[in-house]
C-alpha cells in the first residue's frame, strides 16, 4: 500500500462543505387535509425555503389516498416527515411547529449541549 499522508482535517472540512451543498429528499405524509396537515405542510415549506433553498425535493403524500405507502414507509403517526437523504434517515412527527427541533433533526443546526 502506498503511504501517502492524508490531511485528515482537510478531508473532514471538505466533507462538511459537501454536506452543505447536499440535496435534501423529503417526504411529508399527511392524513387527509385538516388543520394539522395544513400546518405541517406550511411549516415544512417555510423551513425548506428558508434553509434549503434550491437543494431540496419535497413530496407530500396523503396516506388516505395511498395507504400502501404508509406500510412501506413505516408510517405510524400523522403527519410524518421523512428525511430520506442525506443519511441518516430521520422521521419528524407532529405539525412541524417546533422549528428548533426541525433544524437540529435536519442537521442544519448543531445539537445543543445539554
Amino acid at each position: 500500500m502506498k503511504k501517502k499522508p492524508v490531511n485528515q482535517c482537510a478531508a473532514f472540512e471538505k466533507a462538511a462543505a459537501d454536506r452543505r451543498r447536499e440535496t435534501y429528499v423529503l417526504r411529508l405524509y399527511v392524513a387527509g387535509i385538516n388543520r394539522r396537515s395544513e400546518a405541517a405542510i406550511r411549516n415544512v415549506k417555510a423551513l425548506c425555503e428558508e434553509h434549503l433553498q434550491g437543494r431540496y425535493e419535497l413530496e407530500v403524500v396523503d396516506i388516505y389516498q395511498q395507504p400502501t405507502l404508509a406500510k412501506g414507509e413505516q408510517i405510524i403517526a400523522a403527519p410524518t416527515l421523512i428525511k430520506a437523504l442525506p443519511e441518516p434517515l430521520r422521521r419528524f412527527i407532529g405539525d412541524m411547529a417546533n422549528k428548533e427541533r426541525m433544524l437540529v433533526g435536519l442537521d442544519l443546526q448543531p445539537r445543543k449541549k445539554s
Partner: peptide
C-alpha cells in the same frame, strides 16, 4: 423519531 408538535396515530 423527532417529535415536532401535535400528531395522531392516523398512520
Amino acid at each position: 423519531i423527532e417529535e415536532t408538535g401535535e400528531y395522531d396515530l392516523e398512520g
